[in-house]
């Protein structure tokens, strides 16, 4: 754990499986003690990226370093200093909560008591179930146990691959609060998620799509760099509205967003965008539509970046 090295450095990583390109020229760096989010839908290549960084797969080209160690050559050193929580529950269902924790502590040759302070907050909630078999825990509890097991050896970098997928909203929020506390202790956290709302909880985020890194920035910086004007459109016939929006010249892109449609207006358009779109919609026989100007979210940035 040398402070002069960045916790994670990726330089032009590509990975192909046969004919399929899973990752293409991925480059980024993380800072010590930051919460770095890898955001993207299923199939974006998040898990492949995590597996390369955790030395489970070898990249086809490019290089990557964790705490200064090469993921290819120094994989044994990396395996001592990282914590990894794969996307699906991967603890022993037939062992109890306590047995799982002790087992993972012993494979890292640590005494679970020594690092208990790290997991105290998390494990505290598992205390009542310490003798329950891991398979009998609820989804949120399973994640907490998996996180405890990934943390028990006080890793320098913690890799969490979609830790909140399939977890209820309350447990998700709790989970992120725990990550915040870990960050405060100084552990660098690399976390992936398909939920855009979770991007806001990260210090910096990397947006991924189809194996390509769309951009790396802080959530605020990401939003600030969004240079389109964004409108939200609502009406009775949502289907026709979307079709019409996509036909309008000044609209760069239009897509459904929850209960409304978002339309990105090219920055070149000088006039009143709300006025213009309302007129266009009415002109095509779509009355009773509500058009308003809104602030972009990370998801809008994602849509914008992935369109280019």
């Amino acid at each position: 754990m040398s402070s002069e090295h960045k916790p994670v450095v990726a330089e032009n990583i590509s990975k192909t499986f046969g004919q399929v390109t899973a990752l293409q020229n991925i480059s980024f760096e993380t800072e010590r003690g930051e919460m770095f989010g890898v955001i993207g839908p299923d199939g974006a290549g998040k898990t492949t990226l995590f597996r390369i960084l955790t030395t489970l797969l070898v990249q086809t080209s490019g290089s990557a370093f964790v705490d200064g160690y090469d993921v290819k050559g120094d994989f044994r050193k990396i395996r001592k200093i990282i914590g990894y929580m794969p996307g699906r529950f991967s603890l022993y269902g037939d062992l109890s909560v306590e047995e799982n924790l002790n087992f993972f502590a012993s494979i890292f040759k640590v005494n679970p008591k020594d690092n208990y302070y790290l997991i105290k907050d998390i494990f505290h909630q598992l205390e009542p179930f310490r003798n329950r078999k891991a398979s009998a825990l609820s989804g949120g509890m399973k994640q907490k146990l998996a996180l405890s097991c990934a943390l028990i050896h006080k890793p320098s970098v913690l890799f969490l691959d979609e830790p909140t997928t399939g977890v209820d909203p309350v447990s998700r929020r709790e989970f992120w609060q725990m990550l915040d506390r870990l960050k405060a202790i100084g552990i660098t956290i690399i976390v992936s998620t398909a939920y855009m709302d979770e991007a806001l909880l990260c210090d910096r985020i990397a947006l991924m799509k189809n194996g390509i890194l769309l951009g790396v920035n802080s959530p605020a910086g990401m939003v600030a760099s969004y240079n389109n004007r964004l409108l939200a459109v609502k009406g009775d016939d949502m289907h026709s509205i979307l079709k019409v929006l996509r036909d309008i010249k000044v609209v760069k892109s239009a897509y459904s967003f929850g209960h409304e449609h978002h339309a990105a207006i090219s920055p070149d358009f000088g006039g009143d965008a709300v006025e213009k779109i309302s007129q266009e919609l009415t002109a095509r026989g779509l009355n009773d539509t509500l058009v308003k100007s809104i602030k972009p979210s990370v998801e809008d940035c994602y849509m914008e970046l992935s369109a280019n």
Binding site: K80, Y84, S90, F104, F108, C149
Partner: peptide, 13 residues
């Protein structure tokens, strides 16, 4: 199959 091998491989064992 249950994925524990993945965790074990990413450990010093």
């Amino acid at each position: 199959e249950i994925g524990t091998m993945e965790v074990l491989l990413a450990s010093p064992v």
